[in-house]
Design a protein around this nucleic acid. Sequence first.
DNA 1: TAGATTGTTAATCGATTAACAATC
DNA 2: TAGATTGTTAATCGATTAACAATC
Lengths: 219, 219
Amino acid sequence: MSKNGEVSASVIKRLPRYYRFLGELMKQGTERISSRELAALMKLTASQIRQDLNCFGGFGQQGYGYNVSDLHEQIGKILGVDKKLDTILIGAGNLGRAIASHINFETRGCRLIGIFDSNEKVAGKAVAGATVRHISELEFFCRTYKPVIAILCIPKANTQQVAELLVSLGIKGFWNFSHYDLSIDYEGIAVENVHLGDSLLTLTYGVNHILPAQGGEEE
Amino acid sequence: MSKNGEVSASVIKRLPRYYRFLGELMKQGTERISSRELAALMKLTASQIRQDLNCFGGFGQQGYGYNVSDLHEQIGKILGVDKKLDTILIGAGNLGRAIASHINFETRGCRLIGIFDSNEKVAGKAVAGATVRHISELEFFCRTYKPVIAILCIPKANTQQVAELLVSLGIKGFWNFSHYDLSIDYEGIAVENVHLGDSLLTLTYGVNHILPAQGGEEE
DNA sequence: TAGATTGTTAATCGATTAACAATC
DNA sequence: TAGATTGTTAATCGATTAACAATC
């Protein structure tokens, strides 16, 4: 564990949330916080917080707790928000354009440096302050600027081949909004699948199983 | 377990993915599949698939496996894709408009019946074939049409109060895209948080910890 | 020093995997 | 009937929680 060995995915998935809450606390001017207080705020157990943080080192101090801004900075470093990884977005449709303009890339350790689309009509238009390039320029662009992250907002049918091309061009991470399960195909490449359809279906299940129950089933 | 008792969240989260893969298999004309074959396809274990499915009943047949279209239909019913829950969307900014036009609601058991925004200039414009209404009409609209799901694409600062209003107006489920952790505050209400920022940060971590390693750390 | 709270080990809980008898 | 594959119970694994000695 700790410094070198593998940190489990469950822990890593919680880091951004810690980072977010600590950022809030900082804004509010909170200087120190104990694992117990943070646990109450985040609806976790104090044990879990201490376990999670100790995967990366001892950030606290016995009898005192954790220094909020210090811990925030430490977790930021662990996540890599200071790195600004060069990122490209493929697919400037509804969703792609919204992602480009809605997400604050810089605060998540990324820098959006290019947007690509296969539609000639979209190419040339401005999105989020950048000009959309035609997909035919992708290869030259990647060889020149060497982006490491690709955001995929393209139809399921194209995802596999586009991803393969991008891996060959040096992409190390995919933020995948397409309907295709990328995780399956590449080792040594980081993949975050955002399956919005699956998420909505999970909610549908939840609502359907609350509605008729209303006290029928527990929870 | 099975019919009545609680099915764990881990199982439920996997249902949409099963549903998706079975839909694909159907399209390809596959008639039957064994848990072993499906496991190979989805990169799961056959055991897990059989365990998961048996939370809801015995859909298979010994010596044969599962009938693809039958299983697809069964899972669809469990999720509730046939119900078409009335859904409203709050916040017609970049992301809200993209969600409205990008998501196929009908195939996820929902029907988008209203879009609202607090900006007078946005109200009246057409999005995804519907007209955006001013937020002041929300209360009347809900009392009249009784939607059960609300999609929140609004700033963090407004989320809490809007959600409280919506709960009082009968909303039973939130698909929350705002930066605010809704899950915390309501029992008996289904919440799916889509924290895109957290997802990107997780990817950033992944890429930063693959890049320098490249064989240094395992996995 | 006494009080508080961490870091860490041990205990518990839940989820995943393996095994196998039931059965189509 | 023999072969295949499920449904289900038992074993394993990992993640969460509890406990407590270390220490600020």
